[in-house]
């Protein structure tokens, strides 16, 4: 975590996708690249950086599936542990399950918000460019 990421753009898939190419104002949902600064437009305040609670070693020892190695991984591990401890009476793991699902839900919201933010910023950029072109060029 925290290393400088070389945002490697994944090549477009070779199979057929009947889909319009991304317009100038459509965020790239494939790579998730954000053009603006993460804290831009928050009145000088800073957004909290998401922290990974479960360590890599922990996730490896629990054998967390690749798709669960997100910011909810510690909830996943808790849930798995609970299931193992209370095996036949799995209903007792309901709180753990709820925590995991709630975390996933919040994650989903963040992804949608991130998309919308990027989309609006791209529109704003386009508006500004059109205005600059029409008016006197500085």
């Amino acid at each position: 975590m925290g290393g400088v990421a070389s945002a490697e753009k994944t090549p477009p898939p070779s199979y057929l996708v009947l889909e319009k190419p991304l317009s100038n104002t459509t965020p790239d949902y494939r790579t998730g690249e954000v053009t603006a600064d993460a804290n831009y437009g928050f009145d000088g305040k800073k957004r909290k950086e998401r922290v990974m609670v479960a360590s890599d070693a922990e996730m490896q020892s629990v054998k967390v599936p690749q798709k669960f190695r997100d910011f909810c991984a510690h909830h996943y591990i808790n849930f798995e542990k609970c299931k193992k401890d209370k095996f036949p009476l799995l209903y007792r793991c309901h709180p753990e399950k709820h925590n995991l699902e709630h975390c996933q839900y919040e994650d989903y919201l963040i992804r949608m918000k991130e998309y919308e933010r990027e989309r609006r910023l791209l529109h704003r950029k386009q508006r500004k460019e059109a205005k600059n072109k029409g008016g006197d060029e500085e």
């Binding site: 990421a5 965020p27 998401r50 890599d56 190695r69 997100d70």
Partner: peptide, 15 residues
């Protein structure tokens, strides 16, 4: 929506 924020992809993610 954006792709899932993974803890293992080496990028910085913000809430």
């Amino acid at each position: 929506m954006m792709p899932k924020h993974m803890g293992t992809d080496g990028k910085k993610h913000y809430s």
